[in-house]
């Protein structure tokens, strides 16, 4: 346990001293300004556009964090063998990978706190300068909800990318497979969701429909867009949905991470 905590600490220290991480944090803080500028193009849907732009931009930045910080860190660890320095008794492979994952998650949480602050500032400004008709159901506290729900989604994405990294060899492979997996996780679920529509299902053979349902069950909704859209439209997300969202993503993250541990403990380094 002590070794895991120490690897977590070193990972956090390493990441927060990276310029790219500092850039991501500043970029998230600047995002509300971009949202404000962008919303001026529109006449009526000001509140909706602001939240949509903010959610999309922050999601892109957090995904970039996963790709350019997490993948490059794992690429250096495994591809350039920098893990050799640490993987000595008393540090086990499990402790090492758990520490890395915990450190990366903690730094992502820091970015989410920045997202939360920036989101709440944007909402406060929108509420102060617009009348009810332009707000589209936006209320104070939605920036907090957006950040938390998006964070949960990105934990599963991070776990998936870690699993890919411990399986792949070399940074190029890690990046290509991670980008492919992220792309699929963004595009597949909406297609499956559309296919699961009752009207569509009536025209599909039973085998295909059960196959579609199975893929729908095993592939989580890793795209944060649904939540951003719901929030932008002023839709209240009920507690059952939030609970299911948490359960789905934590289960998926756990499953991916256990798989990563199994692969990492068996592979040649």
């Amino acid at each position: 346990m002590t070794t895991t905590i120490e690897i977590t600490r070193i990972t956090i220290l390493e990441i927060i001293r990276m310029r790219i991480f500092q850039f991501f944090a500043v970029a998230i803080l600047v995002t509300p300004i971009i949202a404000l500028v962008f919303s001026n193009i529109f006449i009526f849907d000001i509140g909706k556009v602001r939240i949509d732009v903010f959610a999309a931009a922050t999601r892109l930045l957090i995904t970039s964090y996963i790709l350019f910080v997490a993948v490059t860190l794992m690429g250096r660890d495994i591809g350039q063998k920098s893990c050799y320095q640490f993987l000595m008794p008393p540090v086990s492979r499990h402790a090492y990978l758990t520490g890395r994952f915990a450190g990366l998650t903690f730094c992502m949480l820091m970015l989410m706190v920045v997202t939360m602050i920036a989101g709440e500032l944007l909402i406060a400004l929108t509420l102060a300068e617009t009348t009810e008709i332009y707000r589209h159901g936006i209320t104070q506290g939605q920036g907090f909800t957006l950040a938390i729900l998006s964070f949960v989604q990105h934990i599963s994405l991070l776990a998936m990318v870690i699993m890919i990294c411990v399986w792949a060899t070399g940074l190029a492979e890690m990046l290509v497979f991670s980008i492919a997996a992220i792309f699929l996780s963004w595009t597949l679920p909406p297609i499956i969701h559309a296919l699961q529509n009752q009207e569509v299902m009536q025209h599909v053979p039973p085998l295909i429909s059960s196959l579609t349902n199975s893929i729908g069950y095993i592939f989580p909704q890793l795209n944060g867009g649904d939540i951003a859209v719901a929030l932008a439209h002023g839709v209240n997300i009920n507690s059952t949905d939030i609970l299911l969202h948490f359960t789905e993503h934590f289960s998926y993250a756990l499953m991916m991470f256990v798989l990563a541990l199994i692969i990492f403990s068996r592979r040649d380094l």
């Binding site: 002590t2 120490e6 690897i7 390493e14 001293r17 990276m18 063998k81 320095q85 640490f86």
Partner: peptide
């Protein structure tokens, strides 16, 4: 263990990395 090719984290200092090694 000291590997033949050393890849220590570039963003850390020698003091930080040594403190971590000791705590580990």
């Amino acid at each position: 263990y000291m590997p033949d090719l050393t890849h220590l984290p570039d963003s850390l200092t020698a003091l930080q990395i040594t403190r971590h090694a000791l705590r580990i």
